[in-house]
Design a protein around this nucleic acid. Structure first.
Lengths: 177, 177
DNA sequence: TATTGTTATACTCTATAACTATA
DNA sequence: TATAGTTATAGAGTATAACAATA
């Protein structure tokens, strides 16, 4: 496995300071801090979702996607949005369908395709969970001033746009308002 | 569980486009954007680590922890840092040990405990991977101005501190309700 | 008795590839 | 041929609980 990524092609402007890799380190520090924050919140939320509702994060996420699209989403769209391969979406959808939380609806125009939708009880269950989920998030971030939150949100929105350029495979990914 | 549900219902019922839940929504928006960015980068990095080095993110993370502590870390410390339960650390460590990347060293003072350390070849392998990993991160964040990166890093550092308060499990606190 | 780490178990998520049905 | 989705498989991460050895 060769590791010689050509540094020259990745480096943009490294000639100003003595530290040739200053930008690299800035990026790495940013990433590690973002990752650290996310892992902390994610671990806590995953644990609470499991204990309180017996649901996993991927299932919750799938329902969250569907909740924003009342007309449903096709399997392939879910796969792209959740950034996992198709087989996984089949599995998660199977389970949710067994629990009567989502339903597959055949697309009349393309008989290969389904639209996956929340059922009435799925929507109700999700909204109940989402409200509690939101209160958990508010609790975890309660130490931050409100102004800082909105400022950070705006910055992260820009980060997301930059990433959408860097990581072309996600170009179809939805925008969270 | 019922208390949590009631909490959620209260918030739903009071959501009348008033500002009562404004802070909740600010927090949620912040979290969703942070999560979105992280998931994008994480998916890309996980895929590259797998394809280029045949290593998974948790294993890479464990090695990264050890690289920062040349004297080694005990299983329990790794468990806390990686936020997974002890059995998982055993499994990941087993695999890394089989590949001669880490080694368990008996603690002479406490014969129940080990220090897990990188081997020489583990350190070399990690440093090689880490350099490439860093260049990947720099590539993914290359669209952002450097000033924005450092600014965001500082903000996220504060977020992390707030979270450390909210999420007590990450502190060495013996909570017994 | 409490703590450190392991083992056993079950479940979930994940990627890959082969497969079907349809376009 | 290409596309949408499923199935089959293998591998890995995860939580939980029971357990052994040591403190």
């Amino acid at each position: 496995m060769d590791t010689e990524l050509n540094k020259g092609e990745l480096e943009v402007n490294s000639d100003l300071e003595t530290r040739l890799t200053g930008d690299h380190h800035d990026s790495l520090r940013l990433w590690l801090r973002m990752l650290s924050c996310t892992v902390m919140v994610e671990a806590e939320i995953r644990s609470r979702l499991r204990n309180e509702f017996g649901i996993t994060l991927p299932r919750f996420d799938l329902m969250a996607q569907l909740e924003r699209y009342p007309d449903g989403l096709r399997m392939g769209e879910l796969s792209k949005r959740m950034m996992v391969t198709g087989g996984n979406i089949t599995g998660i959808t199977d389970q949710l369908e067994q629990e009567n939380l989502v339903v597959r609806v055949l697309d009349p125009k393309d008989r290969r395709a389904y639209s996956v939708k929340l059922t009435a009880s799925g929507r109700e269950a999700f909204q109940r969970m989402a409200a509690v989920h939101e209160s958990w998030i508010a609790e975890l971030f309660s130490g931050m001033p409100g102004k800082q939150k909105t400022h950070l949100s705006e910055l992260l929105s820009q980060v997301k746009n930059h990433l959408n350029v860097s990581i072309s495979k996600f170009e179809n990914k939805s925008e969270q308002e």
